[in-house]
Amino acid sequence: MTSIEHHLEEHSGRSNGLDSTGMDEKHTPWNHIIGFSISLVLTVLALWMVLHHIIHAAVLFGAIMALAILQAFVQLYFFMHITEHHVPQWPFHVWMLTLGVTFTILFVVASIWIMSFGAESY
């Protein structure tokens, strides 16, 4: 018996869904498979939309950005288990990621806005 099996057995009383993916009864990682499938679909969709120029460029860019953001949430939810709130860092790591996303958007969007002065001269 490895130490982890011992560990699990010792605390087999838990059924609190601490790891929503790890504890289902059929022992098939359905959540991971679902997450992976969604990420593949989103990627193929974005690629297909761009290669076939299905809509006007500005709208298309908005659409693929939306797909990318969705995809990021898929990773965060299905693989990084961001919504698990029985972990000791809850909810501070979510705050920090939220602030990080805020500043990411700020830095990128504001830089484009600020630096667009006289850009056409290049």
């Binding site: 993916t21 990682p29 997450g35 992976f36 990420s39 593949l40 990627t43 990773q75 299905f78 693989f79």
Partner: peptide
């Protein structure tokens, strides 16, 4: 993407 899945 696949490597992220296998890592999971």
């Amino acid at each position: 993407l696949t490597s992220s899945f296998t890592c999971g």
